[in-house]
Nucleic acid binder design. Structure first.
Lengths: 155, 155
DNA sequence: ACTTGACCTCAAGCAAGGTTGAGGTTGAAT
DNA sequence: ATTCAACCTCAACCTTGCTTGAGGTCAAGT
């Protein structure tokens, strides 16, 4: 009883704060996995909680499930992921997070500068960058938030 | 010709980089408005470009269209919005942006700390805050990103 | 007059990320 | 032995944020 390694979907839901329906959905998408009992009920290993933590964190940053799934597929799968496995994974994510934060900061900066001078216009300040996190994927670079800072001279 | 104040939906699309269908969609949602010609075609005033810039910027930060629409409804509507109108609006948004950035930073920090020690677990580090921008709405407060920083002692 | 491209409406479809409900089983406790 | 919450599947539905297509009009050039 001290370390029963398996939990039910309900327990997983309770512990993670994620609805049972969502958990089943995640499983259907391959984000988490489970063993089945003789009676066809799901049993999750406890490290699934970590996976879910990772999923929710990633979602909050705006990463789509598919991409999260790709990332998670880098984890071992058979053996329980080690601390290092997680560390490697999250290191990658920290890069994404950093990028995202920088983007937001540029945005905020741009908003300050450009609105202060009244030129909140797309063609000049290029505040509207169509991409976020997904940016890592495509080869085609889209117009970025102002190479030089602000939109100073033209406004 | 120097200052024809009105543009067609196609021109608006071209200048903003937003698809015509999306522009019509925005109009249907009340995010932008247009006058109609005798022949029932849309004509937009040029400051619509600013609105669209604002919309796209806001979307990038993860704000849903409804909320953006609420914000935009604070703009005059009859008279063309002045610089100050925009400034007021964007000041509000900067607050949101700041919050969002802070959240991300807490996240990154949490990711560093908690993963370094191998305890990426929901119940301890509470990295999984279900809400973002939407947080302003619900009365029920969900578990927040660590009151104290990190997950130090328990890990 | 006629062609052509840009415009119009309205309905349907799509993708993501789930939730809801019907109808049926399991399993732990009484 | 029975009960009853918790589990199962599968299909349908929901919201957001658009796109696509059918069927029709408008306006400018030849």
């Amino acid at each position: 009883m001290p370390n029963n390694p398996e939990i039910t979907v309900g327990q997983l839901s309770e512990r993670s704060g994620v609805a049972v329906s969502a958990l089943r959905f995640y499983e259907s998408k391959g984000l988490i996995r489970s063993r089945r009992t003789a009676g066809n009920q799901r049993r999750f290993s406890r490290d699934t909680l970590r996976r879910i933590a990772f999923i929710r964190v990633s979602q909050r940053v705006g990463i789509p499930l598919k991409v999260i799934q790709d990332a998670l597929s880098a984890l071992p799968g058979e053996r329980t992921p080690t601390r290092e496995d997680w560390a490697r994974l999250s290191a990658r994510w920290q890069g994404e997070l950093d990028d995202r934060i920088k983007q937001l900061e540029r945005l905020r900066h741009g908003l300050t500068e450009c609105i202060a001078c009244g030129c909140l216009s797309l063609d000049r300040c290029a505040l509207s960058n169509p991409d976020d996190v997904a940016a890592a994927r495509g080869p085609g670079s889209r117009l970025m938030v102002a190479p030089r800072d602000g939109c100073a001279p033209s406004c």
